[in-house]
Structure formats: structure tokens, C-alpha cells
Design a protein around this nucleic acid. Structure first.
Lengths: 342, 342
DNA sequence: GATTAGCACTCGCTAGATTAGAGTGCTAAC
DNA sequence: GTTAGCACTCTAATCTAGCGAGTGCTAATC
């Protein structure tokens, strides 16, 4: 059976309607609200076909239809017209992102906040992954007689540090060691710095060997413990405004899924590396979110993807609005990152 | 009317029962479950008195009674026997806190996590306030030709940093400036470093005046933007296991209150500075949490209170267990902080 | 005088029954 | 191929009755 134009128009109308009303859509509704020039009986026949083809689902006999995952997929790929953002929305985004604090992590979180505010969904974001970026600087700074601050700066401008104790040592020696380490390690990604690389340093640096030996385990531990899955969520309570979550158990289940950071990390990792990625219902790998849709987008620095932001919510979400919003936010974010040029 | 021993025993029984069952308690329940050696009729009379005195409330005629805020207060102050922690619980706490990452903020968050896990409530914590602690070190480190990393270390071991751009400058000059700044500012709290103090530096330091002048606004901005209200929440979804939150609207309202960080900050600030502080229902200043109880405790470094942790939940909470748990956790936390001695 | 048994009464909750309404699928006419 | 008409289905909302837990009061008992 071919999807003639009329069928597509009906499907589109049903999905548009269901997205706004959250109610199963009946043939009479379509006939009245959308003037397709055909009667409800004809629409009924077409709807029956569309159900047979897997694009619609009927919650129970004698109710209207709702879109299936497949239906949404067709809609997203072929039917929806991506709304151009209103200037007002663009300005709002600009206003909330520009002139803000310029710590990269804060900026990403702020983007997430804006996203959840505009979409009324829960947003999630992944800060630039420190471990995947290159080491730009490594410094040792004395902060006390017997305490030293280890500072690692990545090429994306993230700074990680840790204070540790070490028997008395002068700043000038620390400087020399810093320089040696930097010469050896600069340009490697943090991931690259595995035990082997670190241990080899012992053999490659001949000066200050006792200090270096004391230092290496600390360096190794610090690298190990760097918390890299910087998942940030915002707008969690937004879900309570959705009719899907009047069932307390569904809300509970969803919230406890959101609370599992490692799952959210998987969700973001699972998505494409380029442009906007939409995963609808069962298209998601994780069982816990097979009833939800996730839309993600990436932001870049120097042409390289360094992180992601996304929204998660019921499969019934306003795809045609969310996609351009996310595209605009990530573009703006990338632009700002380029300009502050860390 | 005097609160004779028998009345107190009945009140205690009612509260104990209500805390575990969440159901209004009737006279027959008390007579059967707690052998006080009196009949349900007598208990009914006493309960009627206790209600008149304001310690009990009847949701509707012909239902059992539930404790009022005043009832809980009496219970907390005079009736409850603080349970000694089981060794198992102590060991669990020790295990989860010791051998953990030793960033002070992570440690506090971990404490919060443990607390919510044990109490099955939502926990909140306030990390050491950077602004209230003394500046121990201030350093400038070159990370790139035209980029400098400003590092501030507080006496409680918290490190804050920011990268900024400045026209080319050598590390040796940065060192000298660092030293000058450190000499002038060390020992002041971050709060003390207001615009006036910063601006005065210009007049007090004669060397490198152009660099200093470029630096000061950056320093001022950085200090301003330090995010100090480090409120962390854990176990938010725990509330869904409580019968109090089967009403979706109540859950929604509570969650959106929790989401407001500035409110949670007030909640923690509102509590006493010493030992464990219990605020029951209307004892709380904030209207939003007048139906809830908050228990907080403080942790210390060098004898000074540097932060707090707490739990929030319905007034029906297991005070007699929570109080010793919190005391044990904060004691353990303070002990660890003393030993890692940042 | 304090305590208790007994009893009528209250009130929320639950289960069933009833009804209204939205929507379908089918048939027959256009 | 399209549409009007109609019988049928199923949900959701409303109503009702009855149950049960619990009270307050009275009168009898210790």
C-alpha cells in the first residue's frame, strides 16, 4: 500500500493534534478542525489503514488513535515543518546566554536551564569531557609548607586541581618539575595518561627522582578520580505539568531514572555525534526510557564536538519547535565558546 | 491541667504509632498494642484532653488522632528515647565516608548521600562557604601566551580558579605580583575583599602598576561571581515512597520548593549554629515548608562550624532515629576533615 | 471519684451500578 | 470512491449503599 498524499496529511493532522491535546484523536476532530475536504467516514477508513501500517495505535476499541513510535518517526523525518524561531525566542536565548559567567561548565549548565525553560521539558547536558581533551598545562604550586596544589588545564579551558601533602619542597623545584612534566605530557589527552605512561616518567626524568617518585602515585590517583561524567539536569519538575505524569507511579519511575546519572550519561552517549539527534520511544537502547523521546544536539569548540545538551520527555513532544530551539542554542553556545576562546 | 505521667505515655504511644503507620491512631489501637493497663474508654478520655491541650489533632470527627506540631515538639524535647545507633549502621556510615575521595565538597556531598540513604528522606547539604573562610593563597599562573590562571585557595582547602586573558606577561612577573597580592590579602576572608579593598591595592602597590590595573577588575569580577551557595540535594525521589506524597499535587509542590536553591539555602541558614536543630512544621520561617520538618546538624573544622547537612520531610518522621544518625555523620565528617587537615 | 462496658452516631472509603459521551466499523446509498 | 446513518463498544464520571473504624456519651462498676 502506498502512502498517498492524503494519508500523510491525515497522519500529520493527527500527530499535530495529539501533540497539543494529549488526547486520542478521533475522525470527527480531524474532519472539523483541519479542513481536508473529506468526511469523517473517509478519514475513518484512512485511519484504519494507517493503523494497519503501524503508524497509529488505538488505546482501546472505540477510542481515537494516537501515533506510534513509527508514526512519530515518519512525522519527524518527512512531515513536520520546522518552525523558524520567533525573534523573541532568539533574543531570549541570546540574552540568557550572553553576558553570563564565562566558566565553560556554568555556560553549559545555563544553556541547559534555558532549554528546559523554553521547552517545558527536562533538559540534560554533558560538559566538555576533560578526559577526552588535551592537556595544555600542568603546574605544581606550593600553598603551604607541606602542601602542594596540582593544577591540570585542558585545551578546552577546564581546570582541575587537587591539594596533596608532600614533605617540604621549594617552589623553585616544583617549577622545574612542572616544566619537566609539561614537556613530557603536554598534548596527550587525559585518557592517554594511563598507569603505564605515568610510570614510565620515572625512567624518563632523571632529576629530583625522590620527589618525582612521591609525586607520581598522587598524579595517578588524581587523574583516576577526575569526575568526568558531568551530567547536569534541569527542569525536572516540569514533567508534573504534563498530563502523562498524573499517574504518580509513572512520575516516580521517571524521576528515579533521571536520578541515575550513569543512565543519563548513556543516553547522551548513545546519540549521534553530529547535528540534532532524535530518538523516539523504542529507538532508545535503554529499557528505562523506551516510553520516552530524547532529542540531543552537540556543541563545538574549534570545530570539534566537546559536549552535548538534550531534552527528555514523553514521545508526545513538540518536535517541530524543539529541534530549531536546540539547534539555535547549541549554535549560540558554540559561538560564545569560540569568542571567549579559552 | 497537668500533664500527668499517663497522658505523656499515651501521647508517646500515639506518636510512635503514627510515625510508623502514617494512619490516625484510635483509642483501641493504643489499648491493644501498648499495654498501658487501661481501657480504650479511658484512653479516649485522655486523648480528648490531649486534643484540647493542643497536642493532638483530629482530621475529622470519628477518626483517630494525629500529633500536632506542638505534640511533636513535646515528643522531641521530652519523650523520645534517642536510639543508640546499631553498630551495623555506624559501620555503614564509616565505610561510606572513609576511603572516599578527599575533595572537601565531594565529601560533604557523600555525607548527604549517606544521610538520605539511611533516613529515606531528602537530604540537603551546605558545603563550606568559601566567602566566609580566609584566603590562604593567591597565585597567578601562566597557561598560555596571553592567558593567565588566577587561583584562590581558602584556609578550609577549597580552591577556586578562573582563566582570563591579559596581554603578554611573563611568569616571573606574575610570581612577583602574586607575592605582593598575597602579602596584602592573606588572612582576610573572601567577603572582606570588597571593591574598596581591591581598589586600594592600586595605591598600595607601586610596582607593575599597569599590569595591576588590568588585573584588579578581573580579580573583582572573579570574587563577585564565586558561586557560594553550594546547596546539594540527594534522595529527592525518596519522598515517593511516603504515603504523604500519593497526592501528585503535594509531591509537585514539594519538589518545586526543593528545586529552588535559594529557599533551601534559607532553610539551612535559618537553623541553629550548634548541635542538632529540629524545626517542626510551623516552626519553620518559610511558608513553603510549614507542613514539613527539617533537621539539621553542623560539621566543623578547627572547632569552627564550616557547613551543615540536614534532612527535610513530612512532620511525621522518625526523629528518634534521625537525630543520632545525623550526629554520628557530622561527627564522622568533622573527624575526617580534621585528619585530612587541609 | 475514677474506670469501663455498651451503644448510638459520624464520617470517610469502597464497590457496584448507572449513565453519558466519544468514537468506531459496517452497510447501504450516493 | 465517498459519505450518511446507525448499532455497538468502551471509558470515565457520577451516584448510591453499606461497611468499618472510631468517637462521645451514659450508666454501671470498682
Amino acid at each position: 500500500m502506498k502512502l498517498v498524499d492524503r494519508k500523510l496529511k491525515i497522519l500529520q493532522a493527527i500527530i499535530d493534534d495529539f501533540i497539543t491535546t494529549a488526547q486520542p484523536v478521533g475522525s470527527r476532530t480531524i474532519a472539523k478542525k483541519y479542513n481536508l475536504g473529506i468526511s469523517s467516514a473517509t478519514i475513518r477508513n484512512e485511519m484504519s489503514d494507517l493503523e494497519e501500517m503501524g503508524y497509529l495505535v488505538q488505546p482501546h476499541t472505540s477510542s481515537g488513535r494516537i501515533p506510534s513510535d513509527l508514526g512519530y518517526r515518519l512525522y519527524v523525518d518527512n512531515l513536520m515543518k520546522q518552525q523558524e524561531l520567533a525573534n523573541r525566542q532568539k533574543q531570549l536565548i541570546q540574552k540568557l546566554l550572553i553576558n553570563k559567567i564565562f566558566e565553560i561548565e556554568d555556560l553549559v549548565q545555563q544553556s541547559s536551564k534555558v532549554l528546559s525553560k523554553i521547552t517545558n521539558l527536562t533538559s540534560l547536558s554533558l560538559s566538555p569531557q576533560f578526559k577526552k581533551s588535551k592537556l595544555k598545562n600542568i603546574k605544581l604550586v606550593q600553598v603551604d609548607n607541606d602542601k602542594v596544589l596540582l593544577i591540570l588545564v585542558s585545551s578546552s579551558g577546564i581546570v582541575k586541581n587537587v591539594i596533596f601533602r608532600i614533605s617540604e619542597i621549594s617552589q623553585s623545584i616544583l617549577n622545574k618539575i612542572s616544566n619537566l612534566l609539561q614537556a613530557k605530557l603536554k598534548g596527550l589527552t587525559i585518557e592517554d595518561l594511563n598507569d603505564e605512561v605515568i610510570n614510565n616518567l620515572k625512567n624518563e626524568i632523571y632529576e629530583y627522582s625522590t620527589t618525582i617518585e612521591a609525586l607520581l602515585p598522587i598524579l595517578r590517583n588524581t587523574l583516576c578520580e577526575i569526575d568526568d561524567s558531568e551530567i547536569y539536569l534541569d527542569g525536572i519538575t516540569n514533567i508534573f505539568n504534563l498530563p502523562e505524569f498524573t499517574d504518580i507511579n509513572r512520575a516516580k519511575q521517571f524521576l528515579s531514572t533521571l536520578e541515575k546519572k550513569e543512565l543519563m550519561y548513556e543516553v547522551l552517549k548513545d546519540s549521534d555525534q553530529d547535528d540534532v539527534c532524535i530518538k523516539i520511544g523504542r529507538e532508545n537502547k535503554l529499557d528505562e526510557i523506551k516510553d520516552y523521546s530524547v532529542i540531543t544536539a552537540t556543541y563545538k569548540l574549534n570545530g570539534r564536538v566537546i559536549g552535548k545538551i538534550g531534552v527528555i520527555g514523553p514521545t508526545r513532544m513538540n518536535y517541530s519547535n524543539i529541534v530549531p530551539v536546540m539547534r539555535y542554542i547549541t549554535d549560540t553556545l558554540s559561538e560564545i565558546l569560540k569568542n571567549i576562546n579559552l
